[in-house]
């Protein structure tokens, strides 16, 4: 299970990386925005994408739309972990095809639950 973590704050990437490791996912890579993440996704055979929304360059929602528009990536499960908490944003993310949405600040238990739920639905 190879996971890409996209967030512009290295601290948040590190927190998510640590939580994922605790959940047994040790094969993770990091990117600081959509522009860095997209080429990695296209060449890297990732099984799961965890992304923030608000980032300089390409935002998380733009990255999600790019992923869904790409024939090789469109089935990639995407979990959004973000401080963006407006209802219409959550609706927009759902319409863009997000698989899960976690608002910051979050707990380890919430992250675990959402990830497990996503994999349950895929299998």
């Amino acid at each position: 299970m190879k996971i890409l973590i996209v967030d512009d704050f290295s601290t948040m990437r590190r927190i998510i990386k640590n939580l994922l490791r605790d959940l047994g996912f040790t094969n993770t890579d990091e990117a600081d925005d959509g522009n860095t993440a997209l080429p990695m996704l296209k060449s890297g055979k990732y099984d799961f994408l965890v992304t923030d929304w608000n980032m300089p360059g390409m935002t998380g929602i733009e990255l999600l739309k790019e992923v869904r528009a790409d024939d090789n990536l469109k089935t990639l499960p995407v979990l959004m972990v973000t401080a963006e908490a407006k209802r219409d944003q959550i609706v927009a993310a759902a319409q863009a095809g997000v698989n899960g949405y976690v608002v910051k600040p979050f707990t380890a238990a919430v992250l675990k639950e959402k990830i497990e739920k996503i994999f349950e639905r895929i299998q």
Binding site: I61, K86, F106
Partner: peptide
């Protein structure tokens, strides 16, 4: 502009256009 994001919302509990936590997100979804 909507794609750019708004950042953390202050006083989320007092606003109806903003979710007040993960439970709200789950209900909405």
């Amino acid at each position: 502009a909507a794609d750019q994001g708004h950042g953390p919302q202050i006083n989320a509990a007092d606003r109806s256009d903003v979710v007040s936590g993960q439970d709200d997100v789950d209900d909405l979804l």
